[in-house]
Simulated scan of single mutants.
Amino acid sequence: MPTDKDILVSFRGVKKTYDGENLVVKQLDLDIYRGEFLTLLGPSGSGKTTCLMMLAGFEFPTSGEIRLDGKLLNRVPPHKRNIGMVFQNYALFPHMTVAQNVGYPLQVRGVSGEARQRQVREALAMVRMEAFGERFPAQLSGGQQQRIALARALVFKPQLVLMDEPLGALDKQLREHMQLELKALHRQLGVTFVYVTHDQGEALTMSDRVAVFDQGLIQQLDPVGALYETPGNAFVASFIGDSNRLQGQIGLREGDRCTLNLPGGHVLRGVRVGEATPGQAATASIRPERMRLVDASDAAKAADAGNVLRGHAAGVIYFGDHVRLQCDFTEQPQCFVKVPLDTPALASLAPGQPVALAFEPEHLRIFS
């Protein structure tokens, strides 16, 4: 369990407005731990980038406090914060060589001569770009420019590195490769990384913890496994990964479990999230990989042990290692389930045919 000594950055009661009326960040209380990889994740306009810009010093909070290693940052200019920054467009100086770009933060801090050259060589070696020191940014690929921008952020050995969607300009294959490289570099250096993205896959791949933002508030802050498996509300469930949603009313309550009565007459059992009262409207969420296609003989057995939804096949989409079976249910949004290619029932399945999907109550989360 982290202690106060493990906290590197602290936001307390932070709010931000640009026009004096609408709060972009409504109430931010957040601790960032030394050495962790924390991702701020959310849709456009959710407040995540504003949070990062306040930490970097490019924006100041309207109210509240931001502290770095106990020091109040509210009015400290960016160049005095000992924070490295990597931007989405890399912000490299086109008229400078790679070595000059990487050395620029040292020049600003008054480091010169052999000491600066040595630190530049070390930073380039970290990102495996030591052979590119004399080139100019225009002579580099997107991935190489990203590495140089990272080397520049690390060269002065900051306490904290901030990254604002730094992989957004890369193609899919290179982006996935760089995600793994960034995570490996983080493990190697032990520096605290704070990363902003709207890409949920990116967040789950690299992070130790993820803060999910929406409408200026953190909706949930958790390690990636807990965030995916136990979303705290319907927004997080739908925003993180694929999720099927079911609409109904709360039935019986029993401890942390309850039933959900669906319009078509189905009754499902699941984990209750929030204070639910019988008859109250509710939304349930279930991951597609937690559902399985069962035949008629197995459906009755599955219903005794867990949940079964009966509906009709709407379509089959091939995904290489599995197929995505789309299903229609009475008065519900269309659901889908990931079905292994070797599932016998797939061979004869056609649109309009009856289907039964089984799943365990512990994987159905019911949000009141």
Score class of each variant (00 low, 15 high):
Gln173Pro: 02
Gln173Lys: 15
Gln173Cys: 02
Leu174Gly: 06
Arg175Tyr: 13
Arg175Met: 11
Arg175Asp: 10
Gln179Cys: 09
Glu181Asp: 07
Leu182Trp: 06
Leu185Asn: 07
His186Ile: 06
Thr192Asp: 14
Val194Glu: 09
Tyr195Arg: 10
Thr197Ser: 10
Asp199Asn: 13
Gly201Thr: 06
Leu204Gln: 03
Ser207Ile: 02
Val210His: 02
Ala211Thr: 05
Val212Trp: 03
Gly216Val: 09
Gly216Leu: 12
Leu217Tyr: 10
Leu217Met: 09
Ile218Glu: 04
Gln220Glu: 04
Leu221Arg: 04
Gly225Ile: 10
Tyr228His: 03
Glu229Leu: 07
Glu229Thr: 12
Thr230Met: 00
Gly232Gln: 15
Gly232Tyr: 06
Asn233Thr: 08
Asn233Phe: 04
Phe235Leu: 03
Val236Tyr: 04
Ala237Pro: 01
Ser238Gln: 07
Phe239Ala: 08
Phe239Leu: 10
Ile240Asn: 05
Asp242Trp: 04
Asp242Lys: 14
Leu246Phe: 07
Gly251Pro: 00
Arg257Val: 02
Leu260Ile: 12
Pro263Leu: 12
His266Pro: 06
His266Trp: 07
Val267Met: 03
Arg269Ile: 02
Val271Ile: 11
Arg272Thr: 05
Gly279Met: 15
Gln280Thr: 08
Gln280Tyr: 12
Gln280Ser: 14
Ala284His: 08
Ser285Tyr: 13
Pro288Val: 11
Pro288Ala: 13
